[in-house]
């Protein structure tokens, strides 16, 4: 366990088969998708992340104080999400600690769920999901699930460092990137990401309610989106929209 970042297990599990991570970033896609999965599957809270380098924030739900970055789930499926954007100084320690914790829990595959900013998002009825994986097994799974590969591009932010850590430590990481708005909350993109996870993991999470509540979610997540957009700007997230140099 990292000295800088501590994963506190309130309900310790000896092993976890799959871990899904969705934090506030592009279009809040990952956070909305993972929150919907947690709610739909009624996953219990099993832990949270503590650190002095995370923002000094606590959230209160139904009178109970909660840490913003929490983990829900059981031995088959755990899901991590955050109710506040992760500050730039905390990204690397969080990624290292999370991957180390996942390995200690014998996680088979770590799924990162996020959005990829798409210029013509308004023209897309159903956003497409693109995948990246650190292993051949992951790539085969993406292929079987009908998820297109992201062939060229940049990744910036927490999921980029989780990808790097998994690559270094030999843990299979599958990154799912749904076409989304950059700085508007995008429940439609989140629904596409949930459907991709349904195919990859054999889940049966219905996105009907998510799509029905989409407009209300967009109204109620405006401020989180605004704060997240500022955080993304600090980590040069717009680099993801640059054309990669093809000489290397």
């Amino acid at each position: 366990m990292s000295e800088e970042m501590q994963i506190v297990e309130v309900k310790p599990l000896s092993s976890i088969k799959y871990l899904i991570v969705g934090m506030p970033d592009t279009g809040l896609t990952g956070m909305i998708a993972v929150s919907h999965i947690i709610r739909s599957m009624n996953l219990p809270e099993i832990g949270h992340v503590e650190s002095d380098i995370l923002p000094p924030v606590m959230v209160i739900h139904q009178g109970n104080p909660k840490v913003p970055i929490r983990i829900f789930g059981d031995e088959r499926l755990a899901a991590l999400t955050s109710e506040t954007p992760v500050n730039i100084a905390a990204i690397a320690p969080l990624s290292r600690s999370l991957v180390r914790w996942a390995i200690s829990k014998k996680v088979d595959i770590l799924f990162s769920v996020s959005g990829v900013a798409t210029q013509n998002r308004l023209e897309l009825e159903t956003p497409q999901v693109f995948g990246i994986s650190t292993s051949k097994r992951g790539l085969d799974m993406l292929k079987s699930a009908g998820v297109s590969m992201l062939e060229e591009g940049f990744m910036v932010g927490p999921h980029a460092l989780i990808l790097r850590e998994c690559l270094t430590k030999g843990l299979t990481n599958i990154v799912l990137l749904a076409q989304s708005h950059y700085q508007y909350p995008d429940p439609g993109a989140a629904a596409s990401a949930v459907n991709a996870l349904n195919s990859l993991l054999g889940l049966k999470v219905d996105v009907g309610q998510l799509l029905e509540e989409a407009e209300e979610i967009r109204v109620k997540t405006r401020e989180l989106m605004q704060r997240t957009a500022r955080s993304l700007q600090r980590m040069s997230k717009t680099q993801e929209q640059e054309l990669p140099a093809m000489y290397v």
Binding site: R222, E223, M225, Q226, R234
Partner: peptide, 29 residues
Amino acid sequence: REIEEAFEELFYGRPMWDSSTGRLEPLTE
């Protein structure tokens, strides 16, 4: 970084709503 963040909070860290008028501020680009 901390100075930048403090300035950002100063300029942008206001609520995006006004309960006295019942108005919300939309996300804008």
